[in-house]
Design a protein around this nucleic acid. Structure first.
Lengths: 253, 253
DNA sequence: CGTCTGTTTGATAGCGCTCAAAGGGGGTGG
DNA sequence: CCACCCCCTTTGAGCGCTATCAAACAGACG
Protein backbone atom coordinates (compact mmCIF):
# COMPACT_ATOMS: atom_id res chain seq x y z
CA UNK A 1 0.00 0.00 0.00
CA UNK A 2 2.62 2.42 -0.87
CA UNK A 3 4.63 4.16 -3.40
CA UNK A 4 7.64 2.91 -5.22
CA UNK A 5 10.91 4.59 -4.51
CA UNK A 6 11.07 6.34 -7.81
CA UNK A 7 14.02 8.44 -6.77
CA UNK A 8 16.17 5.32 -6.48
CA UNK A 9 17.34 3.70 -9.65
CA UNK A 10 16.91 -0.01 -9.15
CA UNK A 11 18.80 -2.39 -11.43
CA UNK A 12 16.14 -3.67 -13.79
CA UNK A 13 15.16 -7.19 -12.81
CA UNK A 14 14.44 -9.72 -15.52
CA UNK A 15 11.31 -8.31 -17.16
CA UNK A 16 8.61 -10.91 -17.60
CA UNK A 17 5.32 -10.63 -19.41
CA UNK A 18 3.47 -13.50 -17.84
CA UNK A 19 -0.25 -13.18 -18.03
CA UNK A 20 -0.64 -15.55 -15.12
CA UNK A 21 1.97 -15.22 -12.43
CA UNK A 22 3.11 -18.28 -10.48
CA UNK A 23 2.34 -18.80 -6.82
CA UNK A 24 5.52 -17.51 -5.23
CA UNK A 25 6.44 -15.12 -8.01
CA UNK A 26 9.73 -13.77 -6.71
CA UNK A 27 9.27 -10.07 -7.14
CA UNK A 28 8.13 -7.76 -4.38
CA UNK A 29 6.62 -4.34 -3.74
CA UNK A 30 4.02 -2.88 -1.49
CA UNK A 31 1.00 -0.88 -2.38
CA UNK A 32 0.01 2.59 -3.34
CA UNK A 33 -3.67 2.95 -2.97
CA UNK A 34 -5.75 5.60 -4.61
CA UNK A 35 -8.22 7.41 -2.50
CA UNK A 36 -11.21 5.33 -3.42
CA UNK A 37 -13.36 8.39 -3.92
CA UNK A 38 -11.02 9.69 -6.54
CA UNK A 39 -10.72 6.56 -8.55
CA UNK A 40 -13.93 6.94 -10.38
CA UNK A 41 -13.91 10.46 -11.64
CA UNK A 42 -10.45 11.90 -11.19
CA UNK A 43 -9.01 12.79 -14.57
CA UNK A 44 -5.64 12.77 -12.83
CA UNK A 45 -6.06 9.11 -12.12
CA UNK A 46 -2.69 7.45 -12.30
CA UNK A 47 -3.75 4.80 -14.77
CA UNK A 48 -4.55 7.67 -17.09
CA UNK A 49 -1.38 9.54 -16.28
CA UNK A 50 0.81 6.51 -16.68
CA UNK A 51 -0.66 5.33 -19.95
CA UNK A 52 0.22 2.00 -21.56
CA UNK A 53 1.20 -1.05 -19.54
CA UNK A 54 1.26 -4.82 -19.60
CA UNK A 55 -1.42 -6.75 -17.81
CA UNK A 56 -1.27 -9.42 -15.12
CA UNK A 57 -4.02 -11.74 -13.93
CA UNK A 58 -3.99 -13.48 -10.55
CA UNK A 59 -6.41 -16.10 -9.40
CA UNK A 60 -7.63 -16.04 -5.82
CA UNK A 61 -4.88 -16.66 -3.23
CA UNK A 62 -2.07 -16.19 -5.71
CA UNK A 63 0.92 -14.16 -4.58
CA UNK A 64 1.92 -11.13 -6.64
CA UNK A 65 5.21 -10.58 -4.80
CA UNK A 66 6.75 -11.16 -1.39
CA UNK A 67 8.22 -8.80 1.15
CA UNK A 68 11.94 -8.44 0.51
CA UNK A 69 11.76 -9.39 -3.15
CA UNK A 70 13.68 -7.00 -5.40
CA UNK A 71 11.07 -4.55 -6.58
CA UNK A 72 11.01 -2.61 -9.80
CA UNK A 73 7.36 -2.64 -10.75
CA UNK A 74 4.27 -0.76 -9.85
CA UNK A 75 0.81 -2.23 -10.26
CA UNK A 76 -2.61 -0.72 -10.44
CA UNK A 77 -5.67 -2.84 -9.96
CA UNK A 78 -7.96 -3.09 -12.93
CA UNK A 79 -10.41 -5.39 -11.24
CA UNK A 80 -10.43 -7.53 -8.10
CA UNK A 81 -8.96 -7.24 -4.61
CA UNK A 82 -5.48 -7.58 -3.13
CA UNK A 83 -4.19 -7.73 0.42
CA UNK A 84 -0.75 -6.56 1.50
CA UNK A 85 0.87 -7.94 4.61
CA UNK A 86 3.97 -8.47 6.66
CA UNK A 87 4.94 -11.59 8.58
CA UNK A 88 7.12 -12.47 11.54
CA UNK A 89 9.72 -15.20 10.93
CA UNK A 90 7.54 -17.68 12.82
CA UNK A 91 4.53 -17.07 10.62
CA UNK A 92 2.35 -14.53 12.40
CA UNK A 93 0.78 -12.30 9.78
CA UNK A 94 -0.31 -8.68 9.92
CA UNK A 95 -2.31 -7.48 6.97
CA UNK A 96 -1.60 -3.79 6.52
CA UNK A 97 -4.17 -3.02 3.89
CA UNK A 98 -6.69 -4.09 1.31
CA UNK A 99 -6.57 -2.76 -2.23
CA UNK A 100 -9.32 -2.61 -4.79
CA UNK A 101 -10.09 -1.45 -8.30
CA UNK A 102 -8.14 1.68 -9.12
CA UNK A 103 -5.70 1.30 -6.24
CA UNK A 104 -1.98 1.20 -6.79
CA UNK A 105 0.55 -1.09 -5.19
CA UNK A 106 4.28 -1.39 -5.10
CA UNK A 107 5.78 0.20 -1.99
CA UNK A 108 9.51 -0.20 -2.35
CA UNK A 109 12.26 0.71 0.09
CA UNK A 110 15.94 0.04 -0.57
CA UNK A 111 14.97 -1.61 -3.81
CA UNK A 112 12.81 -4.20 -2.08
CA UNK A 113 9.10 -4.59 -1.67
CA UNK A 114 8.10 -3.63 1.85
CA UNK A 115 5.12 -6.01 2.06
CA UNK A 116 3.87 -9.15 0.40
CA UNK A 117 0.85 -8.90 -1.86
CA UNK A 118 -1.70 -11.63 -2.50
CA UNK A 119 -4.97 -11.75 -4.38
CA UNK A 120 -8.14 -12.15 -2.31
CA UNK A 121 -10.25 -12.79 -5.38
CA UNK A 122 -9.42 -13.24 -9.04
CA UNK A 123 -7.68 -9.99 -9.88
CA UNK A 124 -6.30 -8.33 -12.96
CA UNK A 125 -3.67 -5.62 -12.73
CA UNK A 126 -1.81 -3.20 -14.91
CA UNK A 127 1.93 -3.50 -14.52
CA UNK A 128 4.38 -0.62 -14.95
CA UNK A 129 8.15 -1.01 -15.10
CA UNK A 130 10.03 1.37 -12.87
CA UNK A 131 12.21 2.99 -15.54
CA UNK A 132 9.03 3.82 -17.42
CA UNK A 133 7.55 5.43 -14.33
CA UNK A 134 10.63 7.51 -13.80
CA UNK A 135 10.61 8.72 -17.36
CA UNK A 136 6.96 9.67 -17.10
CA UNK A 137 7.48 11.45 -13.77
CA UNK A 138 10.17 13.60 -15.32
CA UNK A 139 7.83 14.57 -18.10
CA UNK A 140 4.78 15.32 -15.99
CA UNK A 141 4.98 16.80 -12.47
CA UNK A 142 1.29 15.98 -11.97
CA UNK A 143 2.25 12.33 -11.55
CA UNK A 144 4.55 13.04 -8.66
CA UNK A 145 1.90 15.20 -7.08
CA UNK A 146 -0.63 12.43 -7.45
CA UNK A 147 1.77 9.91 -5.93
CA UNK A 148 2.26 12.23 -2.98
CA UNK A 149 -1.49 12.56 -2.50
CA UNK A 150 -1.92 8.80 -2.58
CA UNK A 151 0.95 8.17 -0.22
CA UNK A 152 -0.28 10.79 2.20
CA UNK A 153 -3.69 9.20 2.19
CA UNK A 154 -2.13 5.83 2.91
CA UNK A 155 -0.28 7.30 5.84
CA UNK A 156 -3.44 8.83 7.29
CA UNK A 157 -5.07 5.43 7.18
CA UNK A 158 -2.05 3.78 8.73
CA UNK A 159 -2.21 6.21 11.68
CA UNK A 160 -5.81 5.28 12.29
CA UNK A 161 -4.97 1.60 12.07
CA UNK A 162 -2.18 2.00 14.62
CA UNK A 163 -4.71 3.42 17.09
CA UNK A 164 -6.94 0.45 16.39
CA UNK A 165 -4.19 -2.15 16.75
CA UNK A 166 -2.56 -0.59 19.78
CA UNK A 167 -5.51 0.52 21.83
CA UNK A 168 -8.88 -0.83 20.74
CA UNK A 169 -10.73 -3.86 22.10
CA UNK A 170 -11.89 -6.73 19.90
CA UNK A 171 -15.44 -5.35 19.73
CA UNK A 172 -14.14 -1.92 18.78
CA UNK A 173 -11.90 -3.35 16.09
CA UNK A 174 -14.60 -5.44 14.48
CA UNK A 175 -17.10 -2.56 14.59
CA UNK A 176 -14.49 -0.27 13.02
CA UNK A 177 -13.92 -2.83 10.30
CA UNK A 178 -17.59 -3.16 9.46
CA UNK A 179 -17.95 0.60 9.22
CA UNK A 180 -14.87 0.88 7.05
CA UNK A 181 -16.30 -1.71 4.69
CA UNK A 182 -19.58 0.19 4.65
CA UNK A 183 -17.80 3.44 3.81
CA UNK A 184 -15.93 1.65 1.07
CA UNK A 185 -19.20 0.40 -0.41
CA UNK A 186 -20.79 3.84 -0.17
CA UNK A 187 -17.79 5.48 -1.86
CA UNK A 188 -18.38 3.15 -4.77
CA UNK A 189 -22.06 3.91 -4.96
CA UNK A 190 -23.14 0.63 -3.43
CA UNK A 191 -25.49 -0.10 -0.58
CA UNK A 192 -23.73 0.71 2.67
CA UNK A 193 -26.19 -1.07 4.98
CA UNK A 194 -26.05 -4.48 3.39
CA UNK A 195 -22.42 -5.02 2.65
CA UNK A 196 -20.53 -7.91 1.17
CA UNK A 197 -17.32 -8.90 2.86
CA UNK A 198 -14.97 -10.49 0.36
CA UNK A 199 -12.43 -11.75 2.89
CA UNK A 200 -12.53 -14.78 5.13
CA UNK A 201 -12.66 -14.52 8.94
CA UNK A 202 -8.99 -15.26 9.32
CA UNK A 203 -8.04 -12.54 6.84
CA UNK A 204 -10.20 -10.13 8.81
CA UNK A 205 -8.48 -11.34 11.96
CA UNK A 206 -5.02 -10.81 10.53
CA UNK A 207 -6.03 -7.31 9.52
CA UNK A 208 -7.42 -6.45 12.95
CA UNK A 209 -4.75 -8.16 15.03
CA UNK A 210 -7.20 -10.82 16.22
CA UNK A 211 -7.78 -14.54 15.67
CA UNK A 212 -10.39 -16.09 13.41
CA UNK A 213 -12.31 -17.28 16.45
CA UNK A 214 -12.45 -13.88 18.08
CA UNK A 215 -13.71 -12.28 14.88
CA UNK A 216 -16.39 -14.92 14.56
CA UNK A 217 -17.44 -14.69 18.21
CA UNK A 218 -17.58 -10.92 18.06
CA UNK A 219 -19.74 -10.93 14.96
CA UNK A 220 -22.05 -13.45 16.63
CA UNK A 221 -22.30 -11.19 19.66
CA UNK A 222 -23.20 -8.23 17.43
CA UNK A 223 -25.86 -10.35 15.80
CA UNK A 224 -27.32 -11.39 19.14
CA UNK A 225 -27.42 -7.75 20.23
CA UNK A 226 -29.35 -6.83 17.10
CA UNK A 227 -26.58 -4.68 15.67
CA UNK A 228 -26.14 -6.75 12.54
CA UNK A 229 -27.72 -9.70 10.79
CA UNK A 230 -26.34 -12.22 8.35
CA UNK A 231 -27.68 -12.92 4.91
CA UNK A 232 -24.78 -15.38 4.76
CA UNK A 233 -21.34 -15.28 6.40
CA UNK A 234 -20.13 -12.80 3.79
CA UNK A 235 -23.25 -10.69 3.39
CA UNK A 236 -23.90 -8.61 6.47
CA UNK A 237 -26.70 -6.20 7.13
CA UNK A 238 -25.86 -3.33 9.49
CA UNK A 239 -29.07 -2.94 11.47
CA UNK A 240 -27.79 -0.27 13.82
CA UNK A 241 -24.86 1.62 12.30
CA UNK A 242 -25.06 4.36 14.93
CA UNK A 243 -24.54 1.85 17.71
CA UNK A 244 -21.69 0.28 15.77
CA UNK A 245 -20.14 3.69 15.44
CA UNK A 246 -20.34 4.23 19.18
CA UNK A 247 -18.70 0.87 19.77
CA UNK A 248 -16.00 1.51 17.17
CA UNK A 249 -15.00 4.72 18.94
CA UNK A 250 -15.16 3.34 22.45
CA UNK A 251 -18.22 5.41 23.25
CA UNK A 252 -20.48 2.48 24.06
CA UNK A 253 -19.93 0.87 27.48
CA UNK B 1 4.49 12.28 11.22
CA UNK B 2 3.24 13.22 7.88
CA UNK B 3 2.95 15.64 5.11
CA UNK B 4 0.65 18.54 4.74
CA UNK B 5 -1.95 18.40 2.06
CA UNK B 6 -0.26 20.95 -0.10
CA UNK B 7 -2.55 20.34 -3.00
CA UNK B 8 -5.50 21.58 -0.97
CA UNK B 9 -5.83 25.26 -0.49
CA UNK B 10 -6.77 25.75 3.14
CA UNK B 11 -8.30 29.05 4.20
CA UNK B 12 -5.49 30.81 6.02
CA UNK B 13 -6.12 30.63 9.76
CA UNK B 14 -5.23 33.59 11.94
CA UNK B 15 -1.45 33.72 11.63
CA UNK B 16 0.27 34.01 14.98
CA UNK B 17 3.90 34.58 15.74
CA UNK B 18 4.06 33.38 19.31
CA UNK B 19 7.52 32.38 20.36
CA UNK B 20 6.07 30.29 23.17
CA UNK B 21 2.87 28.54 22.30
CA UNK B 22 0.22 27.95 24.95
CA UNK B 23 -0.68 24.53 26.26
CA UNK B 24 -3.70 23.72 24.11
CA UNK B 25 -2.66 25.84 21.16
CA UNK B 26 -5.66 25.35 18.89
CA UNK B 27 -4.03 24.51 15.61
CA UNK B 28 -3.50 20.97 14.35
CA UNK B 29 -1.41 18.91 11.92
CA UNK B 30 0.49 15.72 11.97
CA UNK B 31 4.08 15.08 11.20
CA UNK B 32 6.41 14.61 8.31
CA UNK B 33 9.62 13.03 9.42
CA UNK B 34 12.84 13.12 7.51
CA UNK B 35 14.75 9.96 7.15
CA UNK B 36 17.11 10.56 10.01
CA UNK B 37 20.08 9.48 7.98
CA UNK B 38 19.43 12.16 5.45
CA UNK B 39 18.98 15.00 7.84
CA UNK B 40 22.62 15.59 8.42
CA UNK B 41 24.14 15.72 5.00
CA UNK B 42 21.34 15.96 2.49
CA UNK B 43 21.65 19.22 0.61
CA UNK B 44 18.05 18.70 -0.42
CA UNK B 45 17.03 18.93 3.20
CA UNK B 46 13.68 20.61 3.37
CA UNK B 47 14.76 23.26 5.81
CA UNK B 48 17.20 24.34 3.14
CA UNK B 49 14.68 24.03 0.35
CA UNK B 50 12.01 25.91 2.21
CA UNK B 51 14.17 28.78 3.33
CA UNK B 52 12.98 31.49 5.70
CA UNK B 53 10.48 30.81 8.45
CA UNK B 54 9.34 31.97 11.85
CA UNK B 55 10.41 30.09 14.93
CA UNK B 56 8.46 28.45 17.73
CA UNK B 57 9.73 27.19 21.08
CA UNK B 58 7.90 24.63 23.19
CA UNK B 59 8.79 23.61 26.69
CA UNK B 60 8.52 19.96 27.67
CA UNK B 61 4.95 18.60 27.58
CA UNK B 62 3.58 21.57 25.71
CA UNK B 63 1.13 20.85 22.91
CA UNK B 64 1.92 22.15 19.44
CA UNK B 65 -1.47 21.29 17.99
CA UNK B 66 -4.29 18.83 18.49
CA UNK B 67 -5.84 16.24 16.20
CA UNK B 68 -8.74 17.86 14.37
CA UNK B 69 -7.49 21.41 14.70
CA UNK B 70 -7.60 23.34 11.43
CA UNK B 71 -4.12 22.96 9.99
CA UNK B 72 -2.28 25.33 7.72
CA UNK B 73 1.28 25.10 8.99
CA UNK B 74 4.20 22.82 8.59
CA UNK B 75 6.94 22.58 11.18
CA UNK B 76 10.45 21.28 11.07
CA UNK B 77 12.32 20.55 14.25
CA UNK B 78 15.39 22.65 14.85
CA UNK B 79 16.19 21.03 18.16
CA UNK B 80 14.37 18.78 20.62
CA UNK B 81 11.85 15.95 20.37
CA UNK B 82 8.14 15.72 19.58
CA UNK B 83 5.63 12.92 19.82
CA UNK B 84 2.56 12.63 17.61
CA UNK B 85 -0.46 10.66 18.77
CA UNK B 86 -4.11 9.86 18.39
CA UNK B 87 -6.61 9.30 21.18
CA UNK B 88 -9.90 7.49 21.65
CA UNK B 89 -12.76 9.61 23.06
CA UNK B 90 -12.31 7.94 26.45
CA UNK B 91 -8.66 8.88 26.68
CA UNK B 92 -6.66 5.90 25.48
CA UNK B 93 -3.64 7.17 23.61
CA UNK B 94 -1.66 5.70 20.74
CA UNK B 95 1.58 7.44 19.92
CA UNK B 96 2.22 7.01 16.22
CA UNK B 97 5.69 8.44 16.07
CA UNK B 98 8.57 10.33 17.58
CA UNK B 99 10.20 13.21 15.75
CA UNK B 100 13.64 14.70 16.25
CA UNK B 101 15.98 17.33 14.92
CA UNK B 102 15.52 17.76 11.18
CA UNK B 103 12.18 15.97 11.08
CA UNK B 104 9.09 17.60 9.67
CA UNK B 105 5.58 17.54 11.05
CA UNK B 106 2.18 18.66 9.94
CA UNK B 107 0.18 15.84 8.42
CA UNK B 108 -3.07 17.38 7.30
CA UNK B 109 -6.14 15.72 5.83
CA UNK B 110 -9.31 17.61 4.94
CA UNK B 111 -7.73 20.76 6.30
CA UNK B 112 -7.26 19.26 9.75
CA UNK B 113 -4.29 17.89 11.57
CA UNK B 114 -4.46 14.10 11.64
CA UNK B 115 -2.65 13.72 14.98
CA UNK B 116 -1.86 15.74 18.04
CA UNK B 117 1.72 16.85 18.60
CA UNK B 118 3.39 17.44 21.94
CA UNK B 119 6.92 18.23 23.00
CA UNK B 120 8.79 15.50 24.89
CA UNK B 121 11.61 17.87 25.79
CA UNK B 122 12.14 21.58 25.27
CA UNK B 123 11.90 21.93 21.53
CA UNK B 124 12.38 24.67 18.99
CA UNK B 125 10.78 24.46 15.59
CA UNK B 126 10.71 26.31 12.31
CA UNK B 127 7.20 27.15 11.23
CA UNK B 128 6.08 27.45 7.61
CA UNK B 129 2.74 28.82 6.51
CA UNK B 130 0.94 26.68 3.99
CA UNK B 131 0.55 29.31 1.26
CA UNK B 132 4.29 29.82 1.43
CA UNK B 133 4.90 26.11 1.03
CA UNK B 134 2.64 25.95 -1.97
CA UNK B 135 4.37 28.84 -3.62
CA UNK B 136 7.74 27.23 -3.03
CA UNK B 137 6.57 23.88 -4.33
CA UNK B 138 5.46 25.49 -7.56
CA UNK B 139 8.86 27.04 -7.99
CA UNK B 140 10.92 23.98 -7.17
CA UNK B 141 9.84 20.42 -8.02
CA UNK B 142 12.63 19.08 -5.80
CA UNK B 143 10.54 20.02 -2.78
CA UNK B 144 7.64 17.89 -3.83
CA UNK B 145 9.99 15.04 -4.55
CA UNK B 146 11.52 15.38 -1.11
CA UNK B 147 8.09 15.45 0.50
CA UNK B 148 7.23 12.27 -1.33
CA UNK B 149 10.43 10.62 -0.13
CA UNK B 150 9.71 11.60 3.44
CA UNK B 151 6.11 10.49 3.30
CA UNK B 152 7.05 7.18 1.76
CA UNK B 153 9.58 6.62 4.51
CA UNK B 154 6.93 7.39 7.12
CA UNK B 155 4.63 4.85 5.53
CA UNK B 156 7.31 2.16 5.56
CA UNK B 157 7.77 2.74 9.27
CA UNK B 158 4.03 2.69 9.86
CA UNK B 159 3.78 -0.72 8.21
CA UNK B 160 6.43 -2.09 10.50
CA UNK B 161 4.68 -0.59 13.51
CA UNK B 162 1.38 -2.20 12.49
CA UNK B 163 3.09 -5.60 12.55
CA UNK B 164 4.42 -4.79 16.00
CA UNK B 165 1.10 -3.55 17.37
CA UNK B 166 -1.02 -6.25 15.82
CA UNK B 167 1.13 -9.32 16.27
CA UNK B 168 4.09 -8.95 18.60
CA UNK B 169 4.27 -9.87 22.29
CA UNK B 170 5.28 -7.39 24.99
CA UNK B 171 8.88 -8.67 25.05
CA UNK B 172 9.13 -8.43 21.29
CA UNK B 173 7.75 -4.89 21.30
CA UNK B 174 10.12 -3.62 23.96
CA UNK B 175 13.12 -5.28 22.32
CA UNK B 176 12.10 -3.74 18.98
CA UNK B 177 11.86 -0.36 20.64
CA UNK B 178 15.31 -0.58 22.22
CA UNK B 179 16.85 -1.55 18.89
CA UNK B 180 15.05 1.26 17.12
CA UNK B 181 16.42 3.73 19.62
CA UNK B 182 19.88 2.25 19.14
CA UNK B 183 19.60 2.63 15.37
CA UNK B 184 18.47 6.19 15.84
CA UNK B 185 21.53 6.93 17.96
CA UNK B 186 23.87 5.26 15.48
CA UNK B 187 22.37 7.19 12.59
CA UNK B 188 23.30 10.36 14.45
CA UNK B 189 26.81 9.23 15.11
CA UNK B 190 26.20 8.45 18.77
CA UNK B 191 26.96 5.37 20.79
CA UNK B 192 24.43 2.68 19.93
CA UNK B 193 25.17 0.37 22.85
CA UNK B 194 24.63 2.83 25.64
CA UNK B 195 21.56 4.74 24.63
CA UNK B 196 19.61 7.47 26.30
CA UNK B 197 15.85 7.16 26.27
CA UNK B 198 14.25 10.58 26.41
CA UNK B 199 10.71 9.38 26.99
CA UNK B 200 9.04 8.17 30.14
CA UNK B 201 7.81 4.60 30.58
CA UNK B 202 4.22 5.54 29.94
CA UNK B 203 5.12 7.30 26.70
CA UNK B 204 7.00 4.17 25.63
CA UNK B 205 3.94 2.17 26.60
CA UNK B 206 1.60 4.35 24.58
CA UNK B 207 3.92 3.97 21.61
CA UNK B 208 4.08 0.17 21.91
CA UNK B 209 0.44 -0.44 22.77
CA UNK B 210 1.34 -1.50 26.33
CA UNK B 211 0.96 -0.11 29.84
CA UNK B 212 3.65 1.63 31.88
CA UNK B 213 3.83 -1.36 34.18
CA UNK B 214 4.34 -3.88 31.41
CA UNK B 215 7.13 -1.78 29.91
CA UNK B 216 8.80 -1.53 33.28
CA UNK B 217 8.43 -5.22 34.06
CA UNK B 218 9.74 -6.22 30.65
CA UNK B 219 12.80 -4.01 31.00
CA UNK B 220 13.43 -5.48 34.45
CA UNK B 221 13.18 -8.97 32.99
CA UNK B 222 15.70 -8.05 30.27
CA UNK B 223 18.03 -6.74 32.94
CA UNK B 224 17.73 -9.92 34.97
CA UNK B 225 18.50 -11.98 31.89
CA UNK B 226 21.64 -9.97 31.27
CA UNK B 227 20.40 -8.45 28.02
CA UNK B 228 20.57 -4.87 29.24
CA UNK B 229 21.73 -2.91 32.24
CA UNK B 230 20.67 0.45 33.61
CA UNK B 231 22.93 3.39 34.22
CA UNK B 232 19.71 5.09 35.32
CA UNK B 233 16.11 4.61 34.19
CA UNK B 234 16.80 6.61 31.03
CA UNK B 235 20.32 5.44 30.22
CA UNK B 236 20.34 1.85 29.08
CA UNK B 237 23.27 -0.28 28.07
CA UNK B 238 22.50 -2.99 25.50
CA UNK B 239 24.70 -5.87 26.72
CA UNK B 240 23.46 -8.38 24.17
CA UNK B 241 22.04 -6.69 21.10
CA UNK B 242 22.03 -9.91 19.10
CA UNK B 243 19.77 -11.59 21.63
CA UNK B 244 17.54 -8.51 21.67
CA UNK B 245 17.33 -8.75 17.91
CA UNK B 246 16.25 -12.38 18.10
CA UNK B 247 13.60 -11.47 20.63
CA UNK B 248 12.39 -8.48 18.59
CA UNK B 249 11.80 -10.71 15.59
CA UNK B 250 10.21 -13.57 17.46
CA UNK B 251 13.21 -15.81 16.88
CA UNK B 252 14.02 -16.36 20.54
CA UNK B 253 11.69 -18.75 22.39
C1' DC C 1 11.96 17.85 55.10
C1' DG C 2 7.87 17.17 52.50
C1' DT C 3 5.76 16.87 48.06
C1' DC C 4 5.39 15.52 43.46
C1' DT C 5 6.31 12.83 39.56
C1' DG C 6 7.98 8.77 37.54
C1' DT C 7 9.51 3.90 38.24
C1' DT C 8 9.27 -0.49 40.15
C1' DT C 9 7.08 -4.33 42.32
C1' DG C 10 3.07 -7.08 43.87
C1' DA C 11 -1.56 -9.35 43.61
C1' DT C 12 -5.49 -10.32 40.95
C1' DA C 13 -8.61 -10.48 37.14
C1' DG C 14 -10.21 -10.56 32.48
C1' DC C 15 -9.85 -10.40 27.54
C1' DG C 16 -8.56 -12.72 23.82
C1' DC C 17 -5.71 -16.85 22.48
C1' DT C 18 -5.18 -21.81 22.10
C1' DC C 19 -6.73 -26.25 21.45
C1' DA C 20 -10.55 -28.95 20.01
C1' DA C 21 -14.58 -30.33 17.75
C1' DA C 22 -18.95 -29.72 15.65
C1' DG C 23 -21.70 -27.42 11.87
C1' DG C 24 -22.55 -25.91 7.09
C1' DG C 25 -22.10 -24.99 2.17
C1' DG C 26 -20.08 -25.83 -2.23
C1' DG C 27 -17.64 -28.58 -5.36
C1' DT C 28 -16.34 -33.04 -7.25
C1' DG C 29 -16.63 -37.69 -8.42
C1' DG C 30 -19.05 -41.93 -8.43
C1' DC D 1 -28.50 -37.19 -8.13
C1' DC D 2 -26.41 -38.33 -4.17
C1' DA D 3 -22.38 -38.97 -1.19
C1' DC D 4 -18.31 -37.53 0.31
C1' DC D 5 -14.83 -34.30 1.18
C1' DC D 6 -12.78 -30.05 2.09
C1' DC D 7 -12.68 -25.57 3.68
C1' DC D 8 -14.58 -22.08 6.33
C1' DT D 9 -17.25 -20.77 10.19
C1' DT D 10 -19.07 -21.38 14.56
C1' DT D 11 -19.11 -22.94 19.24
C1' DG D 12 -16.98 -24.75 23.51
C1' DA D 13 -13.57 -25.19 27.39
C1' DG D 14 -9.56 -23.64 29.60
C1' DC D 15 -5.44 -20.97 30.05
C1' DG D 16 -2.00 -17.28 29.81
C1' DC D 17 -0.51 -12.74 28.87
C1' DT D 18 -1.15 -8.30 29.84
C1' DA D 19 -4.20 -4.91 32.09
C1' DT D 20 -5.82 -3.24 36.32
C1' DC D 21 -5.58 -1.86 40.95
C1' DA D 22 -2.52 -0.78 44.64
C1' DA D 23 1.42 0.46 47.12
C1' DA D 24 6.32 1.02 47.89
C1' DC D 25 10.36 3.30 46.19
C1' DA D 26 13.47 6.90 44.26
C1' DG D 27 15.03 11.19 42.61
C1' DA D 28 14.07 16.26 41.81
C1' DC D 29 12.68 20.35 43.57
C1' DG D 30 10.93 23.89 46.56
Amino acid sequence: MFIADISRQVPAAAPRRTKEIGKAEPCSACAIRHAAVHNRVDANDLSNLLGASTEVVLSSRQTLFNEGDPGNRLYSIRDGAIMVYKMTPDGRRQITGFLFEGDILGLISDGKYVCSAEAITKTSLYCYQMPTIERLVKGDPAIERRLLEITRHELVEAQEQMLLLGRKTAKERVASFLLKMARHARDRGQDDLEISILMSRDIIGDYLGLTTETVSRTLTAFKQNGLISFIDPHQIRLSDPAALDDIANGEAR
